[in-house]
Design a protein around this nucleic acid. Structure first.
Lengths: 227, 227
DNA sequence: ATAGCCGGGTGGTGA
DNA sequence: TCACCACCCGGCTAT
């Protein structure tokens, strides 16, 4: 009797979670590797697994989106499994909107599919089913969505450069560029011009000028000439 | 002066759920319509809301995928909100795999983003956040700015600014500062000077000059500044 | 590529 | 001109 072999690649660091073992118990052909970005790979689908607590804490560490970026650029389909009692964790959260907001961003901007499981066991079942579906649908995959262009335009650089100035964020950077036309023009401008033509006030303008003209001192120079 | 208003379209049949009212309470401009396929529409995103029980019972009716098909062909992005205690409902199921399998199919084949909320209140919050995100995305996306990790000293700022130039890292930035003495002097220098005195090549130098002098072009139509 | 809050800067208003 | 104040922006922080 022919038996279908499901194949799942698991990152070596997932071993302690017990999930690889559970999968093997279900008859999956498990391949352990050292994966760069994801925790599991099934066919062309990458899976990132995170416990609720990991997920929550990564909200505040900023590392989350960077990781999401890596996965999304490496695979065409990818899903996030959040494991554990999300509801309970959510109750402890001071600001639940951050949680929901992040999920929305992951789902809509990064194109993640997100699943919630209660424990490793459920995660294993989910992966198993996924492998089964991926296998049977092998040939009837829908065409993928167009890749996001993610262009690094000149405009982005311009805003980035000005935005690295103190007390200048993206909004102000854009305003300045609109007023002055180019990065150089902004940087050439005197503080008065900055204050008059750009939408920024004298205080900020002076601060910027001082910084631009400040003499560079290697070593730990702590000239608090600002403000 | 205008106040920014979030706008959500709700199907008339959603009224009894109380969610439209909750949204209105959050200051959303709610528009009730009779929608063909979805329950809510936010920007270009369609939202189908289902209570857990509805969802579960529709597993066995087969009508679910037909509905999914209709939504997916009418909108480019769409999400499903499953409202209620999924965990509890799942415990009653004889065969949970049907549940998970359906979710997987919806997510991967139909490209649904699926969210789970506890009650109408949470659903309303989710929709509200979604509207907010959709709205801020409608503006042009801005480049991610350099992390400004607590800059105290002038020296750090100087390096950060130059480091935000293309192909200039912290190391080169420092070198340039040492050669030229101040940020302004670096930016004033011609590409030849940069190449000769700073340790960078002409190619990089030219690239930087180009960027500095590039005319700023707002990508999207900017809102006219009527006062 | 989160959301909320706070502090400070800006620019307008009206005296 | 000045004082006030409303708004906007940027920076911080959150489990």
């Amino acid at each position: 009797m022919f038996r279908l072999v499901l194949r799942i690649v698991a990152d070596a660091r997932e071993t302690p979670s017990g999930i690889p073992e559970l999968l093997a118990g279900k008859g999956v052909y498990l391949q352990k590797k050292s994966l760069d970005v994801a925790d599991y790979v099934i066919g062309e689908i990458a899976i990132e697994r995170k416990t609720v607590n990991d997920f929550i804490s990564s909200l505040y560490r900023g590392r989350l989106f960077e990781q999401a970026e890596r996965i999304s650029s490496a695979y065409s389909k990818y899903l996030l499994i959040v494991e554990g009692d999300a509801q309970e964790a959510l109750a402890d959260l001071k600001n639940p909107n951050v949680y929901w907001g992040t999920l929305l961003a992951l789902a809509l901007k990064f194109d993640f599919r997100i699943f919630f499981t209660m424990d490793q066991d459920e995660t294993a079942s989910l992966l198993y089913l996924l492998a089964k579906q991926a296998q049977s649908d092998y040939r009837m995959q829908r065409p993928m969505l167009v890749k996001k262009p993610r262009m690094e335009t000149t405009k982005d650089w311009q805003i980035l450069i000005l935005g690295s100035l103190p007390s200048i964020g993206p909004k102000l950077a854009e305003k300045l560029l609109q007023s002055f036309g180019s990065v150089r023009n902004v940087l050439k401008a005197s503080s008065k011009e900055l204050a008059v033509r750009g939408g920024i006030g004298e205080a900020r303008a002076r601060k910027i000028q001082q910084l631009l003209d400040a003499e560079y001192r290697p070593g730990q120079a702590k000239q608090s000439k600002l403000a």
